[in-house]
Design a protein around this nucleic acid. Structure first.
Length: 255
DNA sequence: ATGGTTGTCCTACAA
């Protein structure tokens, strides 16, 4: 089974890229972030024509998450339980015997801002909930835009980024709190090229200059990590005209 | 040099 995550930064604008990418990569499950549309505006017919069922937790203008899958999603839920959130950032469903969690972690804006405090609160709530999800679901995958680079090698210029939002110590500690529940960063299960990133600022030719961060992740429970045979970043959609600022991450599971 | 780009929506805001 091939599972993937992609922050599309507006599903409406990125639909041609998504269609082409689905045909080329043929993933079984895709988690999308920043769909930026309400449920009633979701392009469901086009997604179905491409061969996918879908679930969506939408919102006007901002956020919005979806799961596309070859098979129907069961036991769907939206949002983190017992965490009141007006922003549409989490959708969950079972695909076969695997529980798929799609997350769009808050950006945090800048260290010390209200949005940064919200990000840390949000991550603490996610960790508390995932602890119980892991106990209930041996095959658990948590995919999405975490808006956190875990290590210096995940940042093009770690010295310049030290202490900045997306790479500050409290954010990295919060992500570590989640992986230490027993969720493996699939990308680091394998040898990878240097300067492997998933996001590049639209400005300053950051992509061409390889000035990126690895902030989109696939986290796997122990049972899934054992079955994982590859995890790669697909740079091709980022090279196209009018791209998303994020590249997709693709993960192969052998069962 | 405190810049610059994109998406949503029309004026700033979020990223």
């Amino acid at each position: 089974m091939k599972i993937a995550t992609w922050n599309v930064n507006s599903l409406k604008v990125r639909m041609p890229h998504l269609r082409e990418w689905l045909a080329r990569q043929a993933p079984d499950v895709v988690c999308l972030q920043e769909t930026k549309c309400e449920d009633k505006a979701f392009p469901g017919a086009e997604i179905e024509a491409a061969g996918y069922r879908w679930i969506h937790h939408g919102q006007k203008t901002y956020n919005g998450v979806a799961i596309l899958a070859r098979a129907e999603c069961g036991n769907v839920r939206r949002g983190i339980p017992q965490f009141t959130d007006e922003q549409s950032r989490v959708i969950v469903g079972d695909v076969g015997d695997t529980r798929i969690v799609c997350v769009y972690v808050p950006n945090g804006q800048s260290v010390g801002s209200d949005k940064y405090e919200y990000k840390l609160r949000w991550l603490a709530a996610l960790r508390d909930w995932l602890r119980s999800e892991l106990q209930a679901h041996p095959k658990l995958a948590v995919l999405g835009d975490y808006n956190i680079a875990p290590e210096p090698r995940d940042v093009h210029d770690p010295l310049a980024w030290e202490g900045q939002v997306l790479f500050s110590e409290p954010e990295r500690a919060a992500l570590k709190g989640i992986t230490e529940l027993g969720l493996a960063d699939a990308f680091r299960l394998f040898e990878q090229p240097e300067k492997s990133f998933t996001w590049w600022d639209y400005r300053m030719n950051a992509f061409r200059r390889k000035m990126g961060l690895r902030i989109d992740h696939v986290l796997l429970s122990p049972a899934l990590a054992r079955s994982c045979t590859a995890c790669t970043i697909d740079l091709e959609p980022r090279r196209l005209e009018r791209p998303s600022d994020h590249a997709p991450v693709i993960c192969e599971l052998s069962n």
